[in-house]
Nucleic acid binder design. Structure first.
Lengths: 229, 229
DNA sequence: CGAGCGATTGAAAAGACTCAACCACCGTGG
DNA sequence: CCACGGTGGTTGAGTCTTTTCAATCGCTCG
């Protein structure tokens, strides 16, 4: 269904760009990126980058969703974040001058542009708006992660699931949440079986409904009260 | 013992500054800060800032340790980070143009300088080195927190305790770890009683020794293997 | 010396995980 | 067209870690 979009995207007309961190660029800057970026189609479950490799640039998601995750000692994934169209991904490691500490993989078919490290950094040097946007973004995510840590440490799995479903609603706007049970468990931070049992509870209590793997939230307020918001 | 340091500190001779993010400042910049900063002595358990308030500047710790924490729904603290002499604290919320999402409180007697928001931001505008340092710091902490989240989600309390003790060794260099059991439990993310029981285990297995509340690590390697490093 | 807080211990309960089995759907190849 | 194999989803049962609640201890500070 997305076939029409799976081709070279133009930054100058890209609606995603206008809303994201690159929204404040000038015409000359855009045309420079336009000439230097590459634009690629990704299949489901394809890797963008993996933990331990060196960053070569940033990914600008045009269409599709990707998971950012970290592997624990037993190889189990912990999903840290799910990014969607419009999000910039992979720039953190570039700044820390270190290898990636997380991995990124598509959750569905994606269309993603790539801007090289050099181009992006020089853009940042010359554009204070972009710079401030990046710093603000980093700071906001830092606060999000402090919250994530606190949730992990103090909330029950049931509470975390409610919280996660609310987060996922903002990532799957206007469509049902569509994640494998395993990915969802790795996002909530629990075992797949536990996740399934709790989803069943929520379904029986009519907070959500499911069609195959797809989940629709029916009672947002109730989930908020369970999550403790 | 620290009485001698509890007075006005000079940035130009401050050893902490030379090692931290402000190490790359020029003479004129330093003297400007020198004139505008304030320097304060804090007692133990004093608050630097609390969640929900607006940031008015950054704190530069000259001496002493502070905890950065977030309160969960039941009011329980989750310690996100422990900062020590030389660390800059409280600048993240300044960039996100939002209220603090965490609180900060001294763990012991401290000597802390304060630089106003305006001074710090103008310094950042004019000094690319500082700017890059800040961005790098934010990125590094983001990676640390991804790791923290993964630990919380996947490791047992025993493993997390071993990991936390190793982190604390780097914060209490050359002296025993000195935290209340409750603070330590809130750092590890567990109940105080559970923490105490596990400390007892570690003591019986001779990985650590304790004198009153103070903890000395005896077998670093063993802790590393327990933590899974 | 007494109050009170932090530290410690014990016992019971609860939450979550593991393991094992089963089901359901889907695409493939005969 | 259908049997087959495989993956992902679901369920059950038992176990174990961790929490909770309650009680005691011990030290420090007025």
């Amino acid at each position: 269904m997305l076939e029409k979009d799976f081709r070279q995207v133009s930054c100058s007309t890209c609606h995603q760009r206008k809303e994201n961190l690159l929204g404040g660029l000038g015409c000359d800057e855009i045309s420079h990126i336009e000439d230097h970026k590459s634009c690629n189609y990704y299949k489901k479950n394809q890797s963008l980058f993996i933990e331990g490799s060196y960053p070569r640039g940033v990914f600008c998601i045009n269409e599709g969703r990707i998971k950012i995750y970290k592997r624990g000692n037993e190889g189990k994934e912990q999903i840290i974040q799910i990014a969607k169209g419009g999000d910039l991904v992979g720039f953190r490691a570039m700044f820390s001058e270190d290898v990636y500490k997380v991995s990124a993989e598509t959750l569905e078919e994606c269309n993603i542009c790539f801007i090289s490290r050099e181009d992006f950094l020089s853009l940042m040097d010359s554009n204070p708006t972009l710079r401030k946007g990046i710093i603000k973004e980093l700071s906001t995510e830092l606060a999000d992660r402090a919250n994530f840590i606190t949730n992990m440490a103090q909330k029950s799995v049931r509470e975390r699931l409610a919280f996660s479903l609310l987060l996922l609603m903002d990532i799957y706007v206007g469509e049902p949440i569509n994640l494998s049970r395993e990915d969802m468990a790795n996002f909530v931070g629990t075992a797949t079986e536990t996740l399934i049992r709790l989803l069943k509870d929520f379904k029986e209590e009519a907070y959500i409904e499911t069609h195959a793997r797809k989940i629709t939230v029916l009672d947002r307020n109730k989930l908020m009260s369970i999550a403790g918001i």
